[in-house]
Design a protein around this nucleic acid. Structure first.
Length: 281
DNA sequence: ATGCAGGGTTCGC
DNA sequence: GCGAACCCTGCA
């Protein structure tokens, strides 16, 4: 991969090949990006702000503040072509892959994914995004940078110190407010332990957090880059798998096994293409 | 206008 | 293991 270094500032620029920010960053798996215009995006994660912009036909990313690992965040080590060509052997993926080419997953900071997907339960994408933004505006800190005025998402300590009543009043997260503050507290206590787990063990640990069931646990594990062999079973996935593959799972764990058996290491990408394709119909 | 679904989870039985 | 309740809002 190409790394461009500006001589004076030592700023690292990363080239993001074969990328579609619109469907990758403003869809249903990442709620921490602001679109400035069609050629510029900025993230407001607690751990860092990435500036993504199109220049001379290529998407490039640089860190504006904080300490995010951009190579890890954009999963620059994966073989995207190999994933797509493997999936495309299945007729089901012909249209999703051709129409949504450039859709990629991100490995987001663990806590940010945890909070945003606790908000996601029995909720819709527009409202999830709005709630995340409300939390950021109310409790984040201004991050000085050369592009745009922006707050970052608050740290676990910050959220743990808000009362559920206040959070509910200011952000519209509703009955999930208590889940959020208590999960933040538990995260502070358990973070050194939990971030070392992966895949099936991680999702079981994640269910100890209030507001986290099987589906949200899958989202946190996958969208933080700690699981690849399954895909979250929400209303959409359940319907899609029933309609397309004629499968219907009695137990959630059976769904995890099915994804792994059917798609192996590509399961999370498989699910993401199906979800983003069918929810746009 | 009123009813319902939205990337589910919790609680009580 | 099953069903109801849940904040709120856009859209039919």
């Amino acid at each position: 991969m190409e790394i461009i270094r500006k001589n004076k500032t030592k700023m690292k620029l990363w080239k993001i090949n074969d990328y579609n920010p619109e469907i990758s960053l403003l869809g249903g798996h990442n709620f921490f990006w602001k679109r400035i215009n069609e050629n510029e995006y900025i993230s407001f994660h607690n751990e860092g702000g990435i500036y993504l912009y199109k220049s001379k036909g290529f998407w490039r990313a640089e860190l504006l503040y904080g300490f995010l690992d951009i190579e890890n965040y954009f999963q620059l080590d994966i073989d995207y072509d190999a994933i797509l060509s493997t999936l495309s052997k299945d007729i089901v993926f012909k249209k999703p892959v051709s129409e949504l080419r450039g859709l990629k997953l991100t490995s987001q900071p663990f806590f940010d994914v945890l909070i945003s997907f606790i908000i996601s339960s029995n909720n819709n994408i527009n409202r999830i995004r709005k709630s995340v933004l409300d939390i950021t505006k109310n409790y984040g800190a201004k991050q000085k940078n050369k592009i745009i005025d922006i707050n970052n998402f608050p740290a676990p300590e910050k959220i743990s110190n808000i009362t559920a009543e206040e959070l509910k009043e200011k952000t519209g997260v509703g009955y999930r407010a208590g889940y959020l503050t208590n999960s933040a507290k538990l995260f502070i206590k358990d973070k050194d332990d939990i971030i070392n787990y992966k895949e099936d063990i991680l999702v079981e640990k994640l269910k100890e957090f209030p507001g986290v069931g099987d589906k949200v646990a899958d989202c946190v594990a996958i969208y933080s880059g700690r699981a690849q062999t399954f895909s979250p079973m929400d209303r959409w996935a359940t319907k899609i798998l029933y309609d397309v593959y004629d499968v219907d799972f009695k137990k959630y764990k059976d769904a995890r096994k099915w994804w792994k058996m059917k798609f192996g290491k590509n399961a999370s990408y498989a699910g993401q293409f199906l979800f983003e394709y069918y929810r746009r119909r």
